[in-house]
Design a protein around this nucleic acid. Sequence first.
DNA 1: ATTATATATAGATAATTATCTATGTTTGGA
DNA 2: TCCAAACATAGATAATTATCTATATATAAT
Lengths: 320, 320
Amino acid sequence: MNLRHLTFRLLEVYVTVVKTGSVTAAARQLHLTQPTVSQQLKRLAETVAEPLFLSQGGRFELTDTGRELYRTALDVTGRFADFQDYLAELRGGQRGRFSIALVNTAQYVLPKLLGPYSRAFPDVDLTVEIGNRQQLLERFERQLDDIYVFSHPPSLEQAHAARFLRNPLVMIAPEQHPLAREREVRLDDILQERLLLREPGSATRMLFESWLQGQGAQWSHGLQMASNGAIRVGVESGMGLAVVSRHVLPSMHPGIVILPVQGFPIESHWHFIIRRDRRLPHAARGFLEYAAGSLEQCLPAEYLCNEVSELFSQTMAEPE
Amino acid sequence: MNLRHLTFRLLEVYVTVVKTGSVTAAARQLHLTQPTVSQQLKRLAETVAEPLFLSQGGRFELTDTGRELYRTALDVTGRFADFQDYLAELRGGQRGRFSIALVNTAQYVLPKLLGPYSRAFPDVDLTVEIGNRQQLLERFERQLDDIYVFSHPPSLEQAHAARFLRNPLVMIAPEQHPLAREREVRLDDILQERLLLREPGSATRMLFESWLQGQGAQWSHGLQMASNGAIRVGVESGMGLAVVSRHVLPSMHPGIVILPVQGFPIESHWHFIIRRDRRLPHAARGFLEYAAGSLEQCLPAEYLCNEVSELFSQTMAEPE
DNA sequence: ATTATATATAGATAATTATCTATGTTTGGA
DNA sequence: TCCAAACATAGATAATTATCTATATATAAT
């Protein structure tokens, strides 16, 4: 037999024999029969092609070679145990890396979850990608990320999705706006106003436009702005009205009011999305588990909609 | 597959692949075919149950797990290589231990060989046992030593033997002895003298007595002394004559003369003896090889009789 | 687009391992 | 001197490994 064919198991057996000082004891400890261990020893000695023990009978004593092999075996199995610890941590989601891609709007909220998570699992390397819906869809196509956050999941053929947070869209107006004090505002009352809109690839815009279409209405004047922050400031300084996620507004938002337009807020939800065909890193799974358990502590109760655990039942059910 | 069944060979393959950065190159280097290496990699990844590479196509990149495994594999195979170095040294006879048992008389000569040997191989642990023939025979029976030095080998059934040095027995007398100046002395002339003899178990005594018997003669007065040194001093101070190995006398030996008795010196040889049934430690073999090559440099030419290398042909011819 | 190169998959097989049960053989005590 | 405990040997078998040849597929460079 060649040294190459030496297995870790065999070294493990050898170490146990040396530690216990007895073949029979080692066999008991390893849940093997005594002859099995005897034969393993014999094979090991043949492999090394040097005697490892003196006195074949009764108790035995190590030769120098045996002692040297014992040292080697301890080092080697120990080093390997380290690697297995590494794997265990990895699998427990306490270590590793994953990437998560967010739609722009979600960046106002997700840090509240990601922050505590990162503090709890400092050995996980986390990459956060941000883009509008269009950009994210491209990343999704190219399988660049492990978890995506969309308000409307792409084709469920390829992905699993679970809602985790309400994302109400509200109509906002400057404080000085004539309708700012009304109890209720009808859509028709504002269709002539100027509306600040996100770019076409944006989810917020898509949602609003499809809602509008459902109402059979059409807006007259629009002005496109690339960021939610810019829109907020624009509204504040009287440039017009806008439809934004409720989360874009800080809890206190002087200078801006939410108009109680009929049919508003437009309800939508953010989802965690994972691809069916991509192996989910343990760390990513760990994050989702963390989210399932800690969403309540991290985010305001009024927006909660924790269905994250459904992801697990979906993925568990899948064939390997 | 279980991590236990992991072989060193597999790690070696993995390390080679990572080092060369290519399956094909690794295969060439290891004298394997490319599919073999591919499959080994696959098996390894299955064993670890984590992906080790990204991008199945073209060139690949290690994952974190792959890198960690690479580190582990390097450590482990490196540690194991150390052990193999140890084995190589052991087998080269540069390291290890053995014991050699000498008859009393040989202790006057063997240090001249053992000294240079020990300086040349400082990592060999050497034990030298000394006793008279009888004591050595007992050690031989109990298989306590690796090499024995006898003048007459015990049963060759059980042992291999090879002569390495002449051991002439001489008759010595005090300088003042009446026959000290004679050209030749007849045995009859001295049979009445007092003879200082070693104890019955001694080889020198046995040899001399059997020679005497061959001559049909018998000695009248004897006096037993336990050591060659004591005998030499005894003769020097006029206690009587003695038969000793020529090697017992220093090259200059004032106060003592060698009597030119008829039939003297009694010729005999020292042999290196090794048991057939006992595994010869590599270091012991190394010593014998050293002896075969360096006897000439270590011992006076007049006593040389280097047949040590015959031991090797004998042992080589033996079935395993 | 074509081709050359690198990698993956499939299918086969001899060698080896891991393990058992049953049965000898030593060896240290009672 | 005889026994019990520990170790070794033999023979058997299912699982696994190591390796091949032949073939398919993907990638990068003309």
